[in-house]
Computed example of a mutant assay.
Amino acid sequence: MTHSFAVPRSVEWKETAITILNQQKLPDVTEYLELTTKEDVFDAIVTLKVRGAPAIGITAAFGLALAAKDIDIKQYLNSSRPTAINLSWALERLSHSIENAISVNEAKTNLVHEAIQIQVEDEETCRMIGQNALQLFKKGDRIMTICNAGSIATSRYGTALAPFYLAKQKDLGLHIYACETRPVLQGSRLTAWELMQGGIDVTLITDSMAAHTMKEKQISAVIVGADRIAKNGDTANKIGTYGLAILANAFDIPFFVAAPLSTFDTKVKSGADIPIEERDPEEVRQISGVRTAPTDVPVFNPAFDITPHDLISGIITEKGIMTGSYEEEIEQLFRGEKVH
């Protein structure tokens, strides 16, 4: 028996504008915004109206296409989220697409076509990641995740959430435990909402419940997405991921990272060299505009943390699953060799 799933698209190209699903308003309001200027695109990325490394890259690619006459905006858009490597990857790919253009019209046509191609490829890439990941799970498994590495963070399917959609289509009955993901609550606002939209069995927990839940609910595995993966396999992902990896190690639970090749940064030797974005302290001092802390309390608000490669049981890509010496396997991957 197979089942379909229905989750709104996060990004769509409309010739003179980019339409995005406003992820700031979820789950209460399903709102779509039209972005028509480079400032609109920059703001949408910085304020998390659009988020998720692949979706950020797709939006920035369309943003560059919107402003074909102003190729200098590449660096402007690239500065909007420094940790997610897909952003600079997509912008670089678009820049290459117009190197031989002889007019502004030709440049814009090339940019639009390349951006659309990135979006189409991302959907297939995510489907393959899901297919590869699904072999790691069996019917009835209970799996934990954090943040939102789902369909609305990509073109479709997602990365870490992709196997759950494919499992739903095959009626495999996986049960997902989603951490809330403080301070911006991507897990509770987005992952829980998205999986429920797709008819997938999901239970929400607060981040501080992870250890107890792993023990009491007999969690089978943890799977997360990634915003950048270093040459040695160290992985940057949403803050709280490192803690989950430590807990998974303590409970002897497999900890998997799911990401496309575009998320790997082979110029970066280790996680120590990955820039970590720090965000507005008000994200921690309040929740949805309601103050929950003293106005002037100092805040440390890193958006990401680094999970060392030795805590990662496997890295799942569209080309296969790496489980051994990550540096060697990542080199093989980028030489075009298939991993197991």
Results as ranks from 00 to 15, higher is better:
217 K>C: 13
217 K>G: 01
217 K>R: 14
217 K>Y: 09
217 K>E: 13
217 K>A: 15
218 Q>I: 07
218 Q>V: 04
218 Q>E: 13
218 Q>K: 14
218 Q>F: 08
218 Q>R: 14
218 Q>N: 14
219 I>R: 00
219 I>P: 02
219 I>W: 02
219 I>F: 08
219 I>C: 11
219 I>Y: 05
220 S>A: 13
220 S>T: 14
220 S>V: 01
220 S>G: 14
220 S>F: 03
220 S>Q: 12
220 S>Y: 02
221 A>C: 10
221 A>Q: 00
221 A>N: 05
222 V>W: 02
222 V>D: 05
222 V>C: 15
222 V>I: 14
223 I>W: 03
223 I>P: 04
223 I>H: 04
223 I>V: 12
223 I>D: 01
223 I>F: 05
223 I>A: 06
224 V>T: 15
224 V>N: 01
224 V>P: 03
224 V>Y: 00
225 G>A: 06
225 G>N: 03
225 G>I: 01
225 G>T: 03
225 G>C: 04
226 A>E: 01
226 A>W: 01
226 A>C: 08
226 A>G: 04
227 D>W: 09
227 D>R: 10
227 D>E: 13
227 D>F: 04
227 D>M: 08
227 D>N: 14
227 D>C: 09
227 D>I: 10
228 R>I: 06
228 R>M: 09
228 R>F: 02
229 I>R: 00
229 I>F: 06
229 I>S: 03
229 I>L: 06
229 I>T: 07
229 I>M: 02
229 I>N: 00
229 I>Y: 00
229 I>C: 03
230 A>F: 08
230 A>N: 06
230 A>S: 14
230 A>H: 05
230 A>G: 04
230 A>T: 01
230 A>Y: 02
230 A>M: 11
231 K>W: 13
231 K>E: 13
231 K>R: 15
231 K>T: 07
232 N>T: 11
232 N>Q: 07
232 N>I: 04
232 N>W: 00
232 N>Y: 06
232 N>V: 02
232 N>H: 09
233 G>E: 05
233 G>L: 09
234 D>L: 06
234 D>W: 04
234 D>I: 02
235 T>K: 11
235 T>V: 10
235 T>Y: 12
236 A>L: 12
236 A>E: 11
236 A>H: 10
236 A>T: 06
237 N>M: 09
237 N>F: 12
237 N>H: 14
237 N>D: 07
237 N>W: 09
238 K>A: 05
238 K>E: 09
238 K>V: 10
238 K>I: 11
239 I>K: 06
239 I>A: 13
239 I>H: 05
239 I>Q: 10
239 I>V: 15
240 G>A: 11
240 G>E: 08
240 G>V: 12
240 G>N: 10
240 G>S: 11
241 T>I: 10
241 T>R: 07
242 Y>D: 13
242 Y>V: 13
242 Y>H: 15
242 Y>C: 13
242 Y>F: 15
242 Y>S: 14
243 G>W: 07
243 G>A: 11
243 G>Y: 08
243 G>E: 08
243 G>C: 12
244 L>M: 11
244 L>A: 03
244 L>K: 02
244 L>G: 03
244 L>F: 01
244 L>P: 02
244 L>S: 01
245 A>E: 04
245 A>D: 06
245 A>G: 15
245 A>V: 11
246 I>L: 13
246 I>W: 11
246 I>E: 05
246 I>R: 14
